[in-house]
Amino acid sequence: MPEHSFRKVFASLESAVPPVPGHLKPRKTPVQSRSGATVEAIHEAVVQVLLTEGLARLTTTRVAERAGVSVGTLYQYFPNKQALLFTILLQHFVEMAEVIEKVSRDRAPRPLADLADGLADAYFSVKLARPEVTTALYRIAGAIDQVRLPPDVFKRLETAVTQALKHASDATFHDPERAAFTLLSALAGVARAGFSRPVSDPAFLRRLHREGRLLSRAYLRAAADTAADLSATS
């Protein structure tokens, strides 16, 4: 992840409301290119240790060794293993919010089917960019209480989808916020099931992407039809 994105993630932890517990916050934000590269190397090392040795054997010492830094350097940024895992998981959600926000910023009216595909494509673009990283992230999620993540990151995701739905040229939604929440939850379920184990088969990944598109189209069409039925009977 680029250095400027690391700064965004660290800043969101510093300003989170309600506050994230202190033991889960990083100690300092990478400011210079060198420090950004160090944090990125630590992130990559976490992924590799998770995939090769598993969560039970993941320690700050192993991560530091794999990253090529001292344990002291790692502790300059992260006070403990939980803070390290927590920050990496938050980073993932920030990346997802950014790509979905790009879809919502395109204000040109679009058929609902195209819009549904665009939302699914954005969602899975992050998951499929590096499948091994996504597998590792789900292992992190199993060890971290996601409820403690800053609520604004989930709000960003839902707001981006809600705004995108308003640009459908052939559909309206009675409750776009609920539709956004349900769509994101459904896509998350597909992704979680798909990456419950290490995945490297390109055919499987393409099928997972197609299923995400199919789910997005079917659900959003059904949600829009329900809205039309409610309007007709009111």
Rank of each mutant, 00 (worst) to 15 (best):
D201T: 08
A56I: 08
S104F: 05
L13C: 13
A143H: 12
L74E: 06
S169K: 03
T60S: 13
G142Q: 12
S5G: 01
S200V: 10
D106G: 01
A160V: 01
A116C: 09
T52D: 15
V47M: 15
V39E: 06
A224R: 02
A64F: 04
S234G: 12
F93W: 14
E211H: 04
P131C: 13
T61P: 00
G118S: 10
I140F: 01
L214P: 00
F10L: 04
Y138M: 13
A222F: 02
D229E: 09
P79G: 04
K155D: 12
A193R: 10
G54C: 13
Q76V: 01
R217P: 07
D114N: 09
A228F: 04
A186K: 02
P18C: 01
L74W: 05
V69C: 10
A122D: 01
R139A: 14
E53A: 15
E95L: 09
H167S: 09
H209P: 00
K81I: 00
E98L: 12
R156Q: 15
R110K: 15
A168T: 01
R7T: 07
R34W: 10
H174Q: 11
A67L: 03
A188P: 00
F154P: 00
H92N: 14
A97T: 13
S231Q: 10
D225T: 06
L55P: 00
E14S: 13
L85Q: 13
K127G: 03
P202K: 10
G142D: 14
A160C: 09
R206Y: 03
T59D: 07
L208G: 03
A37W: 04
L74V: 08
A16N: 10
R7A: 14
R192P: 03
A228P: 00
P26G: 09
Y123V: 03
R27G: 13
S15R: 15
P151Y: 05
A129H: 14
L183S: 06
L149Q: 09
Q76E: 10
V199G: 00
